[in-house]
């Protein structure tokens, strides 16, 4: 069974890079606070999106639009306008998190595919069933908290297609269930589409070392020569019971290549790559590597293990330059 490769694009060049390197589908967001990668300089305006859809469709690839924040009454109209815009562009699916928006989209555009965003936090078949019954959701992206065994069991109980993360930065918290960023900065993935936003970050050089702060809260301090990462707050070093360590999560990336045959055999439909914030070059490289992995895995089936050099190349593109199977395989269980 061939897995569909779903790749990120924060810009038109990134979309082209993903399509050219073998993505089956590309997901994009519109500019503004309507999607979970609301970063400066990122995302599409209407004409870029139209060009992106045309480019992808001409080459047999699909385009999904992510609108995965939970709009407030104040941002509701912007969100529904975005849905209208996406529908007019002829995109292949909407990736939504908010049930109210799903109601709007299902009523107004009954023929437009709905995908349940990872931000919906649907971690069991019953929750997915709720969205299927209500809105005819056709695919669900699973939060990065389930083990490979749990993914397989869930698939047995649902008729909805399942997409899982295969590569990219890792949320250790169940997506859509994390208010750590708004607690520290006032801005969260659910409300503004950002986590640990850049405007709240401050770097300092001190005698104790380089320090990163988020809204003045010290997230990490680096020894001279130590590689410093973006201060995503769950990946900082904190003190718990007099020990200083990465108390929530290490700065590491998800790489699910080691469990690809298991995921494929369990009936997973699509593998998603995180990272609309990545450069076109990075998107192209990651897509190329994942495409090769999926093709090789498809040929070799159950015996497949990812080639060492492929893992190395992906690590070089990964947060923290190191990887984990995350919740798929739980050494900490």
């Amino acid at each position: 069974m061939t897995l569909e490769l779903v790749c990120p694009a924060g810009t038109l060049p990134a979309l082209r890079a993903a399509v050219d390197n073998g993505a089956d589908s590309v997901y994009i967001g519109f500019r503004g606070a309507t999607n979970a990668r609301n970063f400066p300089g990122l995302n599409f305006d209407a004409s870029e999106a139209a060009a992106g859809v045309a480019y992808a469709h001409e080459r047999g690839a699909r385009v999904f639009v992510a609108l995965n924040i939970y709009p407030s009454p104040a941002t509701w109209e912007t969100a529904t306008d975005t849905i209208d815009r996406a529908a007019r562009l002829g995109v292949d699916a909407l990736i939504l998190a908010d049930p109210g928006l799903m109601r709007f989209a299902a009523d107004r555009y009954p023929n437009l595919r709905l995908h349940l965003s990872v931000q919906s936090s649907a971690t069991n078949w019953r929750a997915i069933e709720f969205y299927r019954q209500e809105f005819g959701v056709q695919r669900a992206v699973l939060p990065r908290v389930l083990s490979a065994t749990q993914v397989a069991r869930l698939i047995k109980r649902t008729s909805v297609e399942i997409e899982v993360f295969g590569f990219g930065s890792l949320c250790v918290m169940a997506e859509g269930r994390c208010a750590l960023s708004s607690f520290a900065t006032g801005h969260s993935p659910n409300t503004q589409g950002v986590c640990s936003p850049a405007h709240a970050v401050r770097w300092e050089e001190t005698p104790a070392g380089r320090q990163s702060r988020l809204n003045d809260i010290l997230i990490d301090r680096y020894a001279p020569g130590e590689a410093a990462g973006y201060p995503t707050l769950c990946k900082g070093r904190f003190r718990v019971n007099d020990i200083v360590f990465h108390a929530l999560e290490e700065p590491t990336s998800l790489n699910a290549l080691g469990v690809l045959p298991t995921l494929a055999a369990s009936g997973v439909k699509a593998i998603k790559v995180e990272g609309r914030q990545r450069s076109p070059d990075d998107v192209g490289q990651v897509t190329r590597l994942l495409r090769r992995a999926l093709d090789l895995c498809d040929d070799a089936a159950a015996e497949w293990t990812p080639p060492v050099e492929m893992i190395g190349e992906l690590d070089a593109l990964a947060e923290g330059r190191t990887h984990t199977l995350g919740a798929y395989h739980r050494p900490w269980q």
Binding site: Y70, P71, S72, P73, W76, A97, D98, P99, G100, L101, R103, F104, S120, S121, E134, G176, N190, T191
Partner: peptide, 11 residues
């Protein structure tokens, strides 16, 4: 439950 707006609350 992520209820952030009127439409979701109504649902």
């Amino acid at each position: 439950l992520n209820v952030y707006n009127e439409a979701t609350l109504r649902l």
